[in-house]
Structure formats: C-alpha cells, structure tokens
Design a binder for these strands. Structure first.
Lengths: 147, 147
DNA sequence: TTTACTGCAAACGGTTTGCAAAAGG
DNA sequence: CCTTTTGCAAACCGTTTGCAGTAAA
C-alpha cells in the first residue's frame, strides 16, 4: 500500500499541484478493487472527512486520467464512466448481469496478442478493454433476476 | 445480404410487430460494418426517406437489443451507446484514438477462453466485450493529433 | 377491435463549463 | 505574486418517459 508521499510524488511528476482531494482520490481508487464512478468517489471523499464538490471530482479524475494515473472504463448497460487506479498489471472483470458484481480476472487472456496485432495492422497499440459478462451462481439460481 | 422479408420474419419470431422503421433500422445496421449511435441511425432513416422521431429510434433499438437482434456496445471516451447488428460471428474492433476509425478484427482472440472461464468460476458466461485501442499509421505520423 | 407502436414535448441523469474566490508553488 | 485548483450554479447532451393518437394483427 502506498503512502501519501507516494501520491504526492506522482502528482509532482505529472506536473500537477498537490491537493488533499487529489491525494485522497488516488488513495480511494488505489484501495478499491473495482473501478468507481464519479459519485462513488464523491461519497468516499465525504466519508473520509474531505468533502469536495462533484464538479471538482469530475475535473480531478479527468485530469488524473489524462496523466495516466487513472484509467477510464465503461460497462454495457451503465451510462456512467468508471475510473480505476492505473496499476502495473492490468486486470479484467467478469461482470454479473444480475447483481452487477465485478469479479476480477487477474490473468489477461490476451497474452502477447497486442504485439501480434501491431505487426499485422501496422497500428501502434495503446491498450485494450475487455470485460466478460455472465451470471454468478447466485443470480443464476434466482432465474437471472439479479439482486 | 438479407431481404426485407427476412427482417419481417425475424421480427415475427421475436414477437414484435412489423413496421417500416424497424425493418429499415435492421437493414441499416446489417449493412453498416461499424456499430452506430442512435443519432446516426436517425439520420440514415431520413436519408432513406423514412424519417422517424428520435425517441422512436431509441425505443426501437432498445427493443431490438432486448430481443437479441442487435447488440449494445460502448467505447471509451464516447458517452453514446452504439448498436450493432447481431451477426452469427461476432467481431471486435481496433479503434484509432486519433481519428476514431474502427477497424474490424474478424478473428476473436479469446478462442475457447469463455468455456475455460466458465469452468473455473462456475459462472454462466453470456458474452464479452473487447476493443483494442491504438493509433493508425496516419494518425501516428500526424503526431497523435487525430483529425 | 385490441394491442403494440409512434410522435411530441417535457423530464432526467451524468457530465461539463464560466466565473469569481481560494490555495499551491 | 502568479498559476492552478475549487465551489457554485447553470448549461449541456444523450437518453427516457407520459400521454394522446395511429397503425399492425
């Protein structure tokens, strides 16, 4: 787990000023396994005793994503944009269509596919987005009704 | 290429009434390689001389997606929902971060990964969503500025 | 003739923006 | 100080909804 000074360092390297909100947002996302939406981050900040305006949250996460400290994601059937701490090793999710739970898939099934695709297409590959959808055992028993 | 009567048949099988708009929307999406957003479909309908209200377009594509005649998609950095004709063999896209062009990837790199994941997790897998992002040769030369 | 579909206009929800005040370096 | 960041309120934009009228079966 990273300390506050680590986040401070990261912000500095990205040419961003240090603020309590930015540090807290980085910490919140670093400690959250699943990606979070702006409002969830907003609520988490309140819980930490560092309430911020919603628009500040939006601006901050957008800035952090531009600097590649965070990654943007989105799920089918959810109009919100989700943000995830940009970890060294990326992870995918198996999303339950019933209860929306996100089960991390630690090993990326693509392997060295990106390099292969790069050679085949002559594109410069930047990354990929993969989510698998299905029903968890609980929701399947409940007849796909979800939570 | 399918004929109007084919679409009519599909609608009937799904318990949906036949309307010119629905048929046209199916045809528009069947003929479009990349997925389209509601407004693009709305415009394509006007071009075909079958103008429909935007809310009708939204309602129709949602209905068709529920019946699995269409598939929903979404791309990072685009808040719109895209709709794609549900073809027998699914396809992924290599999306240029510069010009947003979508290059179809015909062979799914996941192979039989879903079955493997199903056994490992005891979930019932319904499908997956995969997009690869990068820069096409043109945009790379322009220094990632895009169009 | 009953049920499903459509158009219209208004509402909605997540996100963005302009501006003045506050805080970081 | 000078520049960035923040709060606030209003705008934005893609999407959804209620309702009355119209078309399919």
């Amino acid at each position: 787990m990273e300390r506050e000074s680590d986040y401070r360092e990261r912000l500095k390297k990205s040419g961003l000023k240090y603020t309590k909100h930015r540090t807290a947002i980085l910490a919140i996302l670093a400690q959250s396994e699943p990606p979070l939406a702006a409002e969830q981050i907003y609520l988490a900040l309140r819980e930490r005793g560092l309430p911020a305006n919603l628009s500040t949250v939006y601006r901050t996460i957008e800035t952090l994503a531009e600097k590649n400290l965070l990654k943007k994601r989105s799920l089918i059937g959810d109009s919100r944009v989700l943000f995830e701490y940009n970890r060294a090793h990326h992870s995918h999710y198996l999303v339950c269509l019933g209860c929306k739970k996100m089960l991390p898939i630690r090993r990326c099934p693509l392997g060295d596919y990106e390099e292969k695709l790069e050679r085949e297409t002559n594109y410069t590959i930047a990354g990929h987005n993969l989510d698998v959808y299905g029903y968890c055992p609980d929701c399947r028993e409940k007849g796909h009704r979800g939570n």
